[in-house]
């Protein structure tokens, strides 16, 4: 009898814990966002300023990745999902996606590398393993080391879609964060990698693509080809809470443009 009671108590405690975790997202005055790690800076700037102006509202951000964010919206675990990849068709059936900003993906090499400019075709050739020596694209006589992200990364998905190299890349390293990619490219003279323009540091060199450097202007007018959208994901058949709706409107308004620029991304052309 004693044992049964104790087991029941443990189970009860565990269940209480689980229900406790689930209920936070729909609380009044809290806007829960969840998803893409690439959107951290954008959402950081937006929420900080928004919370200054509306002190009764708290915007939370859970950096779990695009897939997890979309999943979280589907399961109503957050108000707004953040995705740095386009919604898949099966997801579009239940979800709405709204573009809040555009992200340029920079192609980066070690500063010692003399290569300055590559075409999309050359980038694809490099990543598919067709070009294995830097001398073939105007660099030194050295092997090419391909640095990429893990299979389900939003940045990788964006990069491979744009360069038409989906599932064809012959990576020598698949790293799990933008910081790791930058660090690895900075320490290997023969490496090439990709990362959000916003997160690239001085330790690596950004390449021009098709003769166009990744700048705000070239990303916004579409001449810089390697770019993708940052998306707010909401549920089609559910109404946003007042707080979430107000934040959503703020983030998609012109007032947010400056903040998005400060965060290193590019606002949507209006």
């Amino acid at each position: 009898m004693k044992k049964i009671i104790s087991i029941l108590t443990v189970v009860g405690l565990l269940m209480a814990c689980f229900t406790g975790c689930g209920s936070t997202s729909t609380e009044d005055g809290i806007v829960a966002t969840d998803g893409s790690t690439s959107m951290e800076k954008v959402i950081g700037y937006l929420s900080e300023v928004y919370m200054e102006e509306n002190s009764d509202v708290k915007v939370t951000y859970n950096p779990t990745g695009s897939g997890s964010g979309i999943q979280a919206v589907l399961e109503s675990r957050c108000d707004i999902g953040l995705s740095s990849r386009d919604l898949k068709d099966e997801e579009k059936a239940e979800l709405n996606g709204t573009v809040v900003a555009i992200d340029g993906i920079a192609v980066i090499v070690n500063p010692e590398n003399p290569v300055k400019d590559l075409t999309i075709e050359q980038i694809a050739g490099l990543y598919k393993g067709e070009i294995t020596n830097w001398s073939e694209v105007g660099g030194a006589d050295a092997p090419v080391v391909l640095i990429g992200r893990e299979a389900a990364s939003g940045t990788r998905d964006g990069f491979e879609t744009i360069t038409y190299t989906e599932d064809l890349c012959k990576y020598s390293q698949e790293l799990t964060s933008t910081g790791d990619v930058v660090q690895t490219v900075a320490s290997n003279p023969n490496a090439i990698g990709y990362a959000s323009v916003a997160s690239v540091k001085d330790t690596v060199k950004m390449l021009d693509v098709e003769g166009v450097a990744p700048t705000t202007e070239t990303i916004q007018n579409g001449t810089y080809k390697v770019q993708r959208d940052f998306i707010f994901v909401t549920k089609k058949n559910a109404v946003l809470t007042d707080a979430a709706k107000a934040f959503f409107d703020f983030a998609t308004s012109e007032a947010a443009d400056d903040l998005i620029v400060k965060a290193g991304a590019v606002p949507v052309a209006r």
Binding site: S66, G67, S68, I70, Q71, E150, A151, A152
Partner: peptide, 9 residues
């Protein structure tokens, strides 16, 4: 497990 879990579906 660790590298794909956060994004997987």
């Amino acid at each position: 497990v660790a590298s794909e879990m956060s994004y997987s579906s």
